[in-house]
Design a protein around this nucleic acid. Sequence first.
DNA 1: ATGGCTATACGCTATAGA
Length: 262
Amino acid sequence: MRIASFNINGIKARLPRLLEWLEETKPDVACLQEIKTQDEGFPAAEFEKIGYGAIWHGQKSFNGVAILTKDQEPEETKRGLDGEPEDEHSRYLEANVKSADGKTVRVASIYLPNGNPQPGPKFDFKLRWMKRLRNRATEIWQNEVPAVLAGDYNVIPRDNDVFSVKAMESDALMQPESRQAYQRILNDGWTDALGVSYPAGKIWTYWDYRSGGWQRDQGFRIDHLLLSPLAADQLNRCGVDKEHRGREKASDHAPTWVELNF
DNA sequence: ATGGCTATACGCTATAGA
């Protein structure tokens, strides 16, 4: 089964591109971030028309995550992360989905805080959020089920995951604290599918709209799919739908995906 | 480079993103 992650940067502005991508690549699960709409504005009927069920966690103007599933309805297992009741950002949604052979797979759609400017309260919030995510990841891991934590992590894990270390050195995405918090989750036993499949790096999932980022291929890898052991064992291949970034009215992120042998 | 571009909202200017 194919599970994808796509930061769409506004589901209303991006709807034609999103429907086109779903019909062309037919992912079994699509984890979306930055839907940038309140719950009542989510275009569920458009997805239903092309055979996708959906759950979503919206918010006015910013953030917002969703999970789309082909030929089935996702069974929601978690909405938001524990540990900070005053946090009202819509950044985490989790569900059980079924593979073609009836196996239950746990999937999360994650929109991790950007954290800029750093240092500052937004960066502190990012690091706290990463701790809370790690706690939830551990709960899932302990269930010993195939699981995929997919999303925009806003972390550049390695120096070869960015077009220029110098250009990004003071950015929250690349701070040692951000990388350490990400690495802690990997050290708990999660596999960064693209990271292990392309150790030489130079695979981007994001290109800035500004400064001709796309035209100059100046990007970085910040959208990640983390696999639990039972999912990592079945990793067939993974990649980035890079070509979709070059289309008219594209998101600044490209979809990234894993294909698992069930 | 407090730059560049894009999306959203109690909109014609501000905020957030990365």
